[in-house]
Design a protein around this nucleic acid. Sequence first.
DNA 1: ACTGTATGCTACGCTACGGTAGCGTATTAC
DNA 2: GTAATACGCTACCGTAGCGTAGCATACAGT
Lengths: 195, 195
Amino acid sequence: MSESLVDVDPRVRRSREAVLAASVAFFVAGGPRAVTVDAVSEASGVAKTTIYRHWRDRAHLLADTYRACLPVVPAPADSVSPETALRDVVRSLVHGMGQEPTRSALPHLIATPLDPVESAALPPDVLDQTFSPLVASIERAASAGVIPKRTDTMEAKHQLVGFIIMSAIDPTCAMNNSLADRVTELFLAGRQAQT
Amino acid sequence: MSESLVDVDPRVRRSREAVLAASVAFFVAGGPRAVTVDAVSEASGVAKTTIYRHWRDRAHLLADTYRACLPVVPAPADSVSPETALRDVVRSLVHGMGQEPTRSALPHLIATPLDPVESAALPPDVLDQTFSPLVASIERAASAGVIPKRTDTMEAKHQLVGFIIMSAIDPTCAMNNSLADRVTELFLAGRQAQT
DNA sequence: ACTGTATGCTACGCTACGGTAGCGTATTAC
DNA sequence: GTAATACGCTACCGTAGCGTAGCATACAGT
């Protein structure tokens, strides 16, 4: 894939989009196990043989499906204050995790990389990359003294990411800036109380 | 199952234990999809036909396997202070989540109930029950004024459970009382700073 | 020792799924 | 209009997995 800029032939474009959309739907509904080529073919209206003309095998289709469910988390600008940068990243994360199909796929996004079979064609730490802007913001806050300089970065990451993910998994939870800012405030208040 | 108190015949006991152990191992390694009757039969040394004499079908075996991976979280005594009760529950949760096979199975424990196929024979909210002692402790802390009385219980649950689960998923993280108490302290400090 | 029962084994039928080959047809780009 | 290309369709093959039947054997309780 990734030559998606100039998809000269509209037939190709149409096939790839239909297949990926159906594949994502199955992944969201039932995890990687639910993504079968036959089912995707039938649901998308694209012939099985055509699918295999675009993806070498099921593993490659699954890899693209997985990527399509990942949220996009922009890195914050260096020009803003460390507090603002952290707050913005948390807002982006909350927003990204709240968007479909990411939100419904979240449990599968976490579990799939641990499956030795289904993770075959998956880039190894693609999920970690999603959190790298957050980690950078945490480190910047620590070195600026906004939170204790001795802060364990990974621990802080677990704290923030865990809060966000659990909220996203709860379908009754509103994933908006209000929640994001509460996450940030509770985090900063707790950390700043540390001696 | 659950007549496990008096397993008169040791042959029955041996078969069930061997099958369940193998099944748990596969579940941990690859999620529900990896739990196949043929594989469990071969790995456990128990004949496939014998497995079907003890479990009606694969779904029932999977349900028992799932339950076997859940941690046991005792409810705290009413006699201790709300702070102590909360700290004890968090300690129990951290300890339980850190124990194998729970720790390695965690992502699958979260994802499996969302799979419409694999969750067929699963009790619907068995995972929520694991956190009910925590929820009770949060509510008690709120009504006692240890944390603001207007605390959103579910939000606080997401905050604590998320922190613990993300820590458990990180294999480099030590799941001990030190971590548990840090989780509790960071939680209380953040909440108590709220007006 | 004897009887009931749990187990092991082989073989089987069925379905779902991954992946391929060949051919005819529709659509695109020129 | 014409040639290239993408597509759909049907028919396969091989494997994995679920679940069952029938029979022989080993083991438990008395």
